[in-house]
Every structure is written in C-alpha cells, then in structure tokens.
Amino acid sequence: MFAPEKQYTDDTKEVRMYHDMHTGRWWWSTQEELETQKPGATIIPIIISTDKTQLALFRNKTAYPLYLTIGNIPKEIHPKNIIPGYVLLAYLPTTRLEGVTNQAQRCRLLSNLYHACMRKVLQPLEEAGVSGMSVTSGDGRVRRGHPLFASFIGDYPEQVLTTGCFTGECPGCPVHRDELGDYPPDGPPGFRD
C-alpha cells in the first residue's frame, strides 16, 4: 500500500471500517498534513520493536535486538524466521550497573542508557522523515518516501521503559493505576502525552 484509504461498511459511507494500517486515522491525517508541506509524498510507516527476552551475545557482552518493521507486523518476532520488511536495526546494550548501589539511581541510569541508544540509532530517520528520500517501489516507480515512526511494539516492561511511566501504570493512557480496567462512563481517557 502506498496511500491511505477510507473504507466503509456499506454504500452510505456512514460507518468507517478500520482493519489495516493504511485504513487508519493516523496514516490519513499524517498524509494530509505532509501533502500541505510537500505534495507528492509517500509515507513509509516505520514500526519499531524490541524484545529483551531475545538476548544475544555480542563481543562477550549481553545485548538485546531492536527491530525495524516496514509494512505489516509479523505475528512472531523470531530471528530464525525473519519476514521481508523486518530488519534487525541494532543490538541494545544491557548492563546491571552493579557498581551503583542506589536502586532508584540505577533504574534512572538504565533508562537513560536505553533512551540514549534509541536516540542515536533512530536519529537518521529524523531528517529522512522530514525531507524525504528517493525510494523505488515494487512496481518500479521512484517515489519520494518519508519514513515516519508509526508504532512501537514491546511487552509491558519495554512499554514502561519506552514511555517513561512507572511500573503499574498504563503506558498508553493517563488513567490512575487504581482505575486500570475500569472503562470511564464519559468515554476513553485519551492517550498519554
């Protein structure tokens, strides 16, 4: 898919149908915004995922993989079964920081290490996302593609680390930990900033 689509359940076009990334609101609204700045843009949705359970030994140090997915999300993340469009982007370092005795300081340092690595690894996407880059697609056409961060996939501890919230909180919304699982009567609470 090279462009977003609005699909509906019937010909009256009253009920919109969402089923794949290109039918979602994010792609549609981002495409509209990008078109006002740079007409003729093609969005390349980037999905980032980490899997700390897939530890690897890299130069005698433990590391865990950071994956970049372009297009559909694979059903299982497994290095032996790499799916086209699913690329190992980097190995993120792991450490226990045993020399730091203060637990809170150790947690903060580990979080800072993770975010510094993510910033360094993903930095090249920033300029390419804004300016675009020439990309030849499967149909042979050359388009100006804009690789834009679309989604992050990780288990709960990785979501907490990525969003910077505390364990026990929802990494996606600002609901208080005591209210998790309760659906507010006035509708969804919105997304965490």
Rank of each mutant, 00 (worst) to 15 (best):
T94Y: 01
P65E: 07
I77F: 08
F58R: 09
T101S: 14
R143Q: 00
G71H: 02
L55R: 11
I153N: 01
L92V: 02
T136I: 05
L161A: 11
T163F: 01
A128Q: 14
Y64G: 05
G138R: 14
G71V: 01
P45I: 04
L55M: 13
S134P: 04
L125S: 11
L122A: 11
M133F: 14
C117R: 03
T53K: 12
F166W: 04
D51W: 06
T95Y: 00
R143K: 00
L66F: 06
Q105W: 12
T50N: 01
L109N: 07
Y156A: 00
A104T: 10
H78T: 15
P93K: 06
P93W: 01
S151Q: 13
I46K: 05
L161T: 10
T167E: 13
A150K: 11
S151F: 13
R143F: 05
M133A: 12
Y114V: 07
K120Q: 13
R119Q: 08
A104M: 12
K80E: 14
R141V: 01
E126T: 08
D155A: 01
E35K: 09
Q103R: 09
V87F: 15
A41T: 08
Y86K: 07
Q105Y: 09
I44S: 07
P84R: 07
T167D: 11
M118C: 07
T136A: 00
P39E: 03
I47T: 13
L34I: 14
R143D: 00
Y86S: 04
M118R: 04
V87G: 02
E127A: 10
S49Y: 01
C117W: 04
S131V: 02
E158T: 03
N72M: 11
L122F: 11
C107A: 07
K80W: 14
H78E: 15
P147V: 11
G145R: 03
C107W: 01
G85N: 04
A128R: 15
E35F: 09
T42N: 11
P157I: 02
G140M: 03
